[in-house]
Every structure is written in C-alpha cells, then in structure tokens.
Simulated scan of single mutants.
Amino acid sequence: MTEQGYFTEESSADVVISRNDQAKDKRLAEVMEVITRHLHAAVKEIEPTQDEWMQAILFLTETGHKSDDWRQEFILLSDVLGVSMLVDAINNRKPTGASESTVLGPFHVADAPEKPMGAKICLDGKGEPMLVKGRILDTDGNPIAGAKIDVWQTNDDGFYDVQQKGIQPDFNLRGVFRTGADGSYHFWGAKPRFYPIPDDGPVGKLLGALGRHPYRPAHVHYIIEAEGFETLVTHIFDPDDDYIHTDAVFGVKQSLMAKFRHITAADRISTEGQAGAFYEVIHDFVLAPVI
C-alpha cells in the first residue's frame, strides 16, 4: 500500500493504515486495519470534546491500574460490553443438536479433586441440598462413556471458595466426575444464588452510570471433556432467578436453562437419603465431535 499522504479528518483512517503496511505480522496488520477503521468512524460519529476524550483515556488508565494477578478489570470490561460472549460464540460454533457454550469465568480451579459419582461437593453445609443429574451424549443421542465433568458453583452466600479463603473449605462446591458406560452423571451440590461481579472499580462505576446492575443469575459451571469430542465450557441457569434476563455479562442462553424442581414428596426424600426437601436439576449435554 502506498502511503496516503498527510493526515486530514477525511483521510485519517487510510493514512494511519498505510503506515502499517510494512508490518511483519500480516494478521496483526489486518486486525489493526479493522480496528483503526471502526475506531476512527466511531470518533467521527461521536465527535467527542477534548474533555470527553480525556475522560475516556482516564477511564482506561484506571482500568489498567485496577488490574493485577488476581483482578483483571479489562476482562471485566470485555464481559459487560458483551465482547467476551461474542468471542466465545465465534470460537464455539456448534453443529445442530450440540450443547451451547458460555464464558468460563474467572473462578475455575484446575486441580479440583476427582470424586466418585454421586458424591457431595458442598463441604460447608450451607444452602439447600441440590441433586444435579443427566447424561453426556453425542449428536446421534448415544451415551459417551468416560467423559470428564468438572463442576463448580458459589455457596449459599454467593461466593466461590477462592473468594473466601479461610472461610470456606478448600475446593468447596467443586468436583470432577467421570461418566460410566451409560453416559450418566449425578452429584449433590447446593442451590446456587445470584451474585455481583466485582463492581468496586471503573467497570462497576460505568455500569452504575449506564443504569445497569452488576448481577449474574444463579448458575452451575461445567467443563466437559471426552476423547474425540470438542471440550464444552458452559453453565446451567435457574430460569426463575431474578436476573435471568439481565445477566451482567450476557452469558445466559435459552438452551442452558434447567428446571430447578423443589422436591418435597416424602418418598423421594427417603429414597435419596435426605433429611428434608431438596432441589433436583436434570440436564443432558450433547458434545460436538472433533472434525
């Protein structure tokens, strides 16, 4: 590309892009061209004042200052703008019938203990008992044996164990299970509740200024892996949650809503060995084959 000459309001994007023509990484040059064109178009449409532009710069600066090894405020910004979910959707296009993905979230722990099928993952005893069960299937409806199911959730106070070191037991409400020949799984957790994303930083202030709340609806996280199949990172959601239609990070998908049934029948309570009422969630997952 030949340099486009001097910078003017009309030629701004072309001039900047032409300066990048010698980039060794062609993918970087391609990405920067798209970003530059859209950014310049947005600035021309908005026509910000100098003060407004400085406010934007200071917001990004504050976002960077809030980020560290534990807290990534730029990921949070990506989340609340829907960009994280868009990137997830682009990178996880599924064949017909396969379960949909959603965002991983910041609280996954890689070394959660493997447990026998049917084990309890609630170690702090808080909340209402919840039996979660279902099957892991392929797109033809066949069970997948040996699938690894990694699950985690908040406790009844709306916190993950890693957020409350010394308060919750380590690996509370986390576990890894493997399906048998019939592809089925089941475990005991606790009914999750909604919780806020971190809102004490610049992203939280932005949400407040936009009239948006910081809450995520109640959900249980899954990572499901099986040989010959694409790994599925997903959640199941409580469709009756107050925030199910306004998830702060746009992670809810209709196909991931699972009925949280309140079981009060004495015979079921006795059969499951419970002291009282419990919740039951039944949800199957369908894995896409590796192509």
Rank of each mutant, 00 (worst) to 15 (best):
E3P: 11
E3K: 09
Y6R: 09
T8E: 07
S12L: 09
V15P: 07
V16M: 14
I17R: 05
S18N: 10
S18T: 01
S18R: 06
R19V: 04
A29H: 09
E30R: 15
V31L: 13
A41C: 03
V43Q: 06
V43N: 00
K44P: 00
E45L: 14
I46P: 00
I46L: 11
E47F: 03
P48T: 06
I57D: 11
L60E: 06
T61I: 12
E62D: 13
E62Y: 01
G64T: 04
H65M: 12
D68C: 03
W70G: 01
W70H: 13
R71I: 14
E73C: 12
E73Q: 03
I75V: 03
L77M: 14
S78M: 14
D79Q: 14
G82V: 04
L86I: 05
V87M: 14
D88I: 06
I90S: 04
R93D: 13
G97L: 08
G97C: 10
G97Y: 07
A98G: 06
S99Y: 02
E100S: 14
V103K: 07
G105T: 13
A110I: 04
D111F: 06
D111W: 04
K115A: 10
K120T: 10
I121V: 15
C122I: 05
C122M: 01
D124V: 02
K126G: 15
E128W: 02
P129Q: 01
K133P: 00
R135G: 03
I136N: 01
L137E: 12
L137S: 06
I144L: 13
A145W: 06
G146E: 09
I149G: 05
D150Y: 11
D150Q: 13
Q153S: 12
T154H: 03
F159D: 07
Q164H: 02
Q168S: 15
D170C: 00
F171R: 09
N172A: 05
N172K: 01
L173N: 12
G175E: 06
V176K: 08
F177K: 10
T179Y: 10
A181T: 11
G183Q: 03
Y185S: 06
H186N: 13
H186P: 01
F187Q: 06
W188I: 11
P192W: 07
R193W: 04
R193Y: 06
F194V: 00
Y195H: 15
I197A: 05
V203Y: 02
G204P: 08
K205C: 03
L206R: 09
L207K: 03
P217D: 05
A218E: 09
A218V: 00
H219W: 05
Y222D: 01
I223M: 11
I223E: 10
E225P: 00
E227Y: 00
E227W: 00
E230M: 02
L232P: 02
L232E: 02
V233Y: 04
I236W: 05
D238V: 07
P239T: 12
D240I: 02
D241H: 04
D242V: 10
Y243P: 03
I244P: 04
F250E: 11
K253A: 04
S255K: 13
A258Q: 10
F260Q: 07
A265N: 15
A266N: 01
R268P: 00
S270E: 14
E272W: 11
A275H: 08
A277K: 05
F278A: 08
F278S: 03
Y279L: 05
H283V: 09
F285R: 09
V286C: 12
V286A: 12
V286M: 14
L287W: 07
A288K: 10
I291F: 04
I291L: 14
